[in-house]
Amino acid sequence: MRFDPFREIEELTQRMDRAFGGSVNGQLARLAPPVDVHEDEQGLELTLDLPGVQPDDIQIEAENQTLTVQAKRTYNRGEGRTAHRVERAYGTFSRTFSVPAKYDLTKVEADFDHGTLTLRVPRSEAAQKRTVQVRSGGQLSAPKTVDAEQGGTQQAEQAQQG
């Protein structure tokens, strides 16, 4: 595993939060679960590790090009038990992601399986590649693929002028 200074800082912050009662300035500490983000032709896929979290304790909000995931894992020591060491993270887990406008946050799908939350955010219809047939002298020529992200409007304007 490669050295990741940001992960090391995040883990150190979490340890400090736990060491000082799990609160920062009188508020419960918010822990950031690790995430993998992948992109393909269909859209984005975000995978978060939320071990020990129940599906009912997960809240996902998508608004204004922002995707927020919150989950809560509570610590239950139980009556008559003494804790000698508590190293696992408890409390509220939270991650917020800025999502580019080319993705459609109204169609987010979420799956939770064995402590792993997978979110799929499809590309918006306007950002999808599509085939456009160009007419020349009243005849259709070979179809051309236009990518909305990479100047599709510019290509369409050139086709109208030519």
Rank of each mutant, 00 (worst) to 15 (best):
P122T: 00
G21P: 03
G115F: 00
D4S: 07
V146W: 14
G115W: 00
L67W: 01
R7F: 14
Q160I: 13
R18A: 06
T66V: 09
A101G: 14
E125F: 11
L28E: 10
D40N: 06
L67M: 07
D17L: 06
V108W: 05
F93R: 02
V53W: 01
L48F: 00
I9V: 13
A156M: 15
T153E: 14
T13W: 07
A19E: 03
D49R: 06
L31G: 05
P5D: 05
Q27Y: 10
V134M: 07
T106H: 09
K72N: 09
L31I: 04
A62W: 05
V24C: 10
L44Y: 02
T96D: 08
G21C: 01
L28N: 11
T68E: 01
P34Q: 11
G152R: 01
Y103H: 06
P122Q: 00
T66F: 04
N64G: 07
D111E: 13
T153Q: 14
Y90F: 06
E10T: 11
F6C: 12
V35T: 10
A110R: 05
N76F: 12
H84Y: 13
K107M: 03
M16W: 07
L44G: 02
Q133W: 12
E109R: 13
F3D: 09
N25W: 09
S136Y: 12
V121P: 01
Q154T: 12
L105I: 04
I60S: 07
Q150N: 15
L31W: 07
S124D: 00
S141Q: 15
R85C: 10
G115E: 00
I58N: 06
T145I: 08
R2I: 12
A126H: 07
G21E: 00
Q70T: 10
Q14N: 09
V37L: 05
Q59L: 12
G91V: 01
S136I: 15
R85G: 07
T116H: 07
G91L: 02
S94H: 06
R95G: 00
T145E: 04
V86P: 04
D40Q: 02
L67E: 04
R81A: 11
F3A: 13
S124H: 03
D57A: 05
D56Y: 11
A127P: 04
A142C: 13
T145N: 08
V69D: 01
V132C: 03
F112Q: 01
E10G: 07
K129T: 15
R85E: 10
N76W: 13
A19F: 04
N25G: 07
T66Y: 03
F97Q: 00
E149N: 03
D36I: 15
F112N: 00
R18L: 08
V134E: 04
H114P: 04
R81K: 12
Q139G: 13
T145F: 05
S98D: 11
T13Y: 05
R120K: 04
T74M: 14
G137P: 02
M1L: 06
V37I: 08
Q59A: 12
L48W: 01
Q59H: 11
A126Q: 10
R123N: 06
T131P: 11
R73M: 02
M16G: 11
R2D: 10
D57F: 09
E39V: 10
G138D: 02
D49L: 08
E125Q: 14
Y90S: 00
T74E: 07
G80K: 14
K107H: 05
D17P: 04
T68L: 06
G26A: 05
A62P: 06
N64A: 11
Q160L: 15
A89T: 13
